[in-house]
Design a protein around this nucleic acid. Sequence first.
DNA 1: CGTAATCTTGACGAGGTTCAAAGGACGTGG
DNA 2: CCACGTCCTTTGAACCTCGTCAAGATTACG
Lengths: 243, 243
Amino acid sequence: MNTSNVLDFADFQRRCGQLSVRQACLPAGIDPIDQAELDRLVRRRRRLDAGQALYRAGDAMSAVHVARCGTFKAVVPSAQGEATVVAFHLPGELIGLDGLGAGRHRCDAIALEPADVCELPYEALAEAAARLPKLRAQLHRVVGLGIARDMDHAALLMRRLAHERVAGFLDDLSRRYCALGAPPGGFRLPMARDEIAAYLGLTLESVSRSLTRLQEDGMLYVRGRRIEILDPPRLAAVAGSAA
Amino acid sequence: MNTSNVLDFADFQRRCGQLSVRQACLPAGIDPIDQAELDRLVRRRRRLDAGQALYRAGDAMSAVHVARCGTFKAVVPSAQGEATVVAFHLPGELIGLDGLGAGRHRCDAIALEPADVCELPYEALAEAAARLPKLRAQLHRVVGLGIARDMDHAALLMRRLAHERVAGFLDDLSRRYCALGAPPGGFRLPMARDEIAAYLGLTLESVSRSLTRLQEDGMLYVRGRRIEILDPPRLAAVAGSAA
DNA sequence: CGTAATCTTGACGAGGTTCAAAGGACGTGG
DNA sequence: CCACGTCCTTTGAACCTCGTCAAGATTACG
């Protein structure tokens, strides 16, 4: 297996290199004039190492972030030490909307890999959105998609067997990687088993067993963090309904 | 038991009668000038019977709704008939944000009681929000709170025992009723056991058993849909952590 | 190359679902 | 106003999935 973390990161950088902010930050459909406006908003780029926090719960929400490369997890820190992962953010996806309500973040955003992040100052973004209807619509769309994703996540957690949750998780991840322009069929998980477990409401053992089972059923090939999806329709079927 | 459905509804109407749109629709903190603007946006009021749908999954999201009275459930209709409830909307809470992403609703909104709903045309609202910074901030806040609620819901579903989920559900409901100005300590559940179960990722039997257990432990009084919370701190403790 | 972290696999037990039936609440019609 | 039927809720018992505890295999990294 010669697909190490470092190689993957280099791959990300190569792919990210040709992405302007407009493509990376707010997927498709923005007016060219608005794009220039949006590009001007980007305050700075931050580089983060794996494990570093982009922000912590309680921090004031002064900006919205978008990773150009690197994956993030959004973690609600529990008093009892048992943290729950409420979201994974792939490159190009908006990070930090969880602070909208109170003006303070409700969860930690932690990089799973070395990451490169752009910062969009919140007030400036809101002001720009007020002036530019297209941008506003786009922002609403992105926020709405985030809400929809949370709903799907909640639905995935309920009334679903362990292997169905894992199937749903992989199906979702796979689609998001495709949307990012990654080659379909296979990818490398940026997160550990226990982080998947914390996201799906399971234990790491159950996640591991589910992966093994899905592999035995012939729809996956699993080796460590490397995932090959051999039968996407069947995976989606297991994810979507009682199978 | 003289607190029938009809009486409860009358009670709601009485309380709603003195609420202007500004209070009912977007909790506190809007500029008086903006309030007038907001009041003008309200297109019409719809009356719905129990079980009637305000909208269905797939409908175009042309407006955002707020119930003046009556409770709603947001249901993601599953292909397999096993629908999951992703949210309950009490009077005064925003309904219909689930369509933001695709412009189409992702779930059914169904009245649990006879309901009275105001409609805020989406485009007009967005346009007004663009012009009025205070209203905009308020809208963002409401949306953010909705996102936060979904996160809490997701967290509640994971890694929590049945009676802890039920405790969390009742604690949340109780607080929301208080925020609405209802008398603290007790209320009548507008939804059936199986709807609670679909919301918490349990079966109706488990919900029933959990209620019985919480009652036996002395922190609740349960009789059918009537709930009296005898020991709020302990209920919150059970809800919040591993107890 | 060796150590530490991550992942897999096994056995057992607790909590939840399923299947089944009885007990109440509510609304309708007499 | 009471009786009846339907729906909702509660309770019981057996089965099953998943969590827990514990060891072993694999991978990652200095």
